[in-house]
Design a protein around this nucleic acid. Structure first.
Length: 419
RNA sequence: GUGGGCGUAGCUCAGCUGGUUAGAGUAUCAGGUUGUGGCCCUGAGGGUCAUGGGUUCAAAUCCCAUCGCCCACCCCA
């Protein structure tokens, strides 16, 4: 039997209402904040991600779905959205039409990792990018958007973690300090972290390995060494969040694995989704646009994992969606009336009702059971004595009440059902 | 890439230390009188016990391999 590829999943009809609901909340809240939707291709030239995300990152180093197409171009399925949005922003000169572009998206993403709880190889993210303003108002705004969406979904066990990485010059300065601090302890670090000592020293903070945490316990913190401007911006973000009633905690060890971040970074984590607890992550990236060849412009954004959010909703039992139902089910009392019944359903559907009938030539009892299973609000009997005398029998399934209508009173039936 | 756990009907699972035709619940289908659902009752269909090999008189049950799934590490949403 051919099965879905490792790390991919079918989203079956039973799960669709949850997805649609999530999508509707996302769209509604982004709209209220005046973000415009953008859709980009699922694949890009590999170089975009290599340059945008950073050659040293795990995503680019070992997780991308990359292949050579028939024209010898190296193509990569998008592992994240920021690089693509920025590419589109530059390519279409969106920054010249208006200074600030507030964009949001919903899209599948692809990363070749080992699957686990809350992690797949094809997964879905929604998120946003606000391009063209360095104002901390936007840093606060996107956190508020993300938090509002999760709150609207009813999630309670969530936490906002906030940090600032400063600008590159202050960060480089700090790296020297950290490197000096760790100099004598390198031997005590794990093998991975020893590599990071040279490649990306900040990320030693991410390590969950005990010996690393022990060493890092007393390490100097980047937050204490960031430049004056970053510090002021960070203070304003905190003030704005506090004013907006968003609970957060500053986590000076929050280092994100993507190279492009500057100043504000944040994550929203859940205690209900297993080890991969980040539902949402993002931050500011003031140099990325220039780095990808655009006119220098600042940006800030986040991405949220839809599977993880739905998992959290499931585990917190927050989504009490009403069961699906249909308006009306047509019951054939006589087999000879199959064609007439078929025309009747079509008429009802033209009147914008959700209408269904039996396709399996089953007994009246079986048809009734089916109508019940589909949560039909009404049932219309076609056939029998009343049909011979020009009548149709309409039954209200919740009250059990039945009423006869003339064949010409079709619109009356429709009106009654629509009430 | 590394480590741990698991693989029995569509789904959730039982099947003890190997012993005759592999079970339950649920779902599906049919029926419970002639044209009417939900509850209830009766019955039916549905399994190469992941795959391949081995041990044994005998394997779903023990051993090995392969594959798959799950979880964790790394990292991320």
């Amino acid at each position: 039997m051919i099965k879905a590829v490792t790390g991919t999943k079918d989203i079956l009809p039973a799960e669709i209402p949850g997805w649609k609901y999530l999508e509707s909340v996302v769209e509604r809240i982004f709209r209220s904040f005046n973000y415009k939707e953008i859709r980009t291709p699922v694949f890009e030239e590999t170089g975009l991600f290599a340059r945008g995300i950073g050659e040293e990152t795990d995503i680019v180093g070992k997780e991308m779905y990359t292949f050579i197409d028939r024209s010898e171009t190296s193509i990569t399925l998008k592992p994240e959205m920021t690089a693509s949005v920025v590419r589109a922003y530059i390519e279409h000169s969106l920054g010249k039409q208006q200074q600030l572009n507030k964009l949001y998206y919903l899209s599948p993403m692809f990363r070749q990792e080992r699957p686990q709880a809350g992690r797949q190889r094809q997964f879905h993210q929604f998120g946003c990018e606000a391009l063209g303003s360095a104002s901390p108002l936007l840093d606060a705004e996107i956190i508020i958007v993300a938090f509002s969406i999760l709150k609207e979904l009813g999630l309670k066990d969530i936490k906002v973690k906030l940090n600032s990485l400063g600008v590159p010059s202050s960060r480089e300065n700090y790296k020297k300090i950290l490197r000096e601090f760790l100099k004598g302890s390198v031997k005590k670090l794990s093998e991975d972290s020893r590599k990071r000592y040279d490649a990306n020293i900040l990320r030693i903070f991410d390590s969950k390995i005990e010996c690393d945490q022990e060493v890092m316990k007393d390490a100097p913190l980047l937050l204490d060494f960031i430049d004056e401007e970053s510090k002021n911006d960070f203070e304003l973000v905190k003030t704005l969040l506090t004013q907006s009633g968003i609970p957060f905690e500053v986590d000076p060890r929050l280092v994100r694995g993507l190279d492009y971040y500057t100043k504000t970074t944040f994550e929203i984590v859940s205690g209900k989704v297993g080890a991969q607890s980040a539902l949402c992550g993002g931050g500011r990236y003031d140099l990325l646009i220039e780095q990808l060849g655009g006119v220098p412009a600042p940006g800030v954004g986040f991405a949220a994992g839809m599977e993880r959010i739905l998992l959290a909703c499931e585990n917190e039992r927050t989504l009490n969606l009403p069961p699906e139902s249909i308006d009306i089910y047509i019951i054939k009392l006589d087999k000879e009336l199959t064609a007439a019944a078929f025309q009747t359903v079509l008429e009802l559907r033209k009147s914008r009702l959700t209408a269904e009938l039996d396709y399996l030539d089953r007994s009246v009892k079986a048809q009734m059971r089916e109508a019940n299973k589909l949560n039909a609000r009404f049932v219309l009997f076609v056939g029998g004595d009343e049909y011979k005398s020009g009548k149709l029998n309409l039954k209200n399934m919740s009250t059990g009440e039945q009423r006869l209508f003339g064949m010409n009173d079709f619109q009356q039936i429709v009106q009654l059902i629509k009430m």
